[in-house]
Design a protein around this nucleic acid. Sequence first.
DNA 1: AGTCAATATTGATGTTCGTCAATGTGACGA
DNA 2: TCGTCACATTGACGAACATCAATATTGACT
Lengths: 116, 116
Amino acid sequence: MDVHEITPCCSPVLAEPLTETDAEELAAAFKVVADPVRLRLLSLIAQAGEICSCDLVAPIGKSQPTISHHMSVLADAGLVHREKRGKWAWYSVAPERLSVLRDALGGVPTPAGRHA
Amino acid sequence: MDVHEITPCCSPVLAEPLTETDAEELAAAFKVVADPVRLRLLSLIAQAGEICSCDLVAPIGKSQPTISHHMSVLADAGLVHREKRGKWAWYSVAPERLSVLRDALGGVPTPAGRHA
DNA sequence: AGTCAATATTGATGTTCGTCAATGTGACGA
DNA sequence: TCGTCACATTGACGAACATCAATATTGACT
């Protein structure tokens, strides 16, 4: 499956009416992140900058096929980059892709009062 | 790729290791938004400012119980406010809640220079 | 060649989730 | 009080998904 094309940038959920198709795509994109294992994988990869699958199985505590499956989901969604070097698969995050999701959640330029 | 502007420095997901519990919570939160019907509902409500259930069923094209179910999910997640007035239930969005999700995805509080 | 190590894929299983028909719960008006 | 309208809840069904054991594939090394 190629969930790759998620509408480049501008699907502010709160701004304009979502077509059924746009909603499907956006939902599919969020579904990728809506899993605890994948979130922890993203976290691990981000901190390492670059990491190989062999170092992902143990910290997560799931079987190797399960990790491989989740990494494929993340890679297919474009959230991580996969590079095979020798027998190892090295992963790194694709921040642009995360930004797409973030922007979809409220393209609102921050209500001007939210500074903290 | 034009990643020169990204600065993936400060997102909760990308910044510190997610505990298993934190990952569960975050995933649950994203799961709420990872549904096309709920996204369209959010979109409809946001544009109307305030809207009652009776005006949600037709545009979405699902049964009344289904809409009611999704609205409960959104309300339980705190993404919308529910106010019963007479027989009608009026809904409005809770933007703060969406911000939480957005921040989790790369919490840069809008760099103030990057406007679309 | 042959063997081992790392990762991907297959098949199967249990669970979660979206959906609807039917029914229940209040609220309003005659 | 009775009937109706708006919404919530229940129960059930099917599809999607996360997970693992087993197996396949690919790369490196001798």
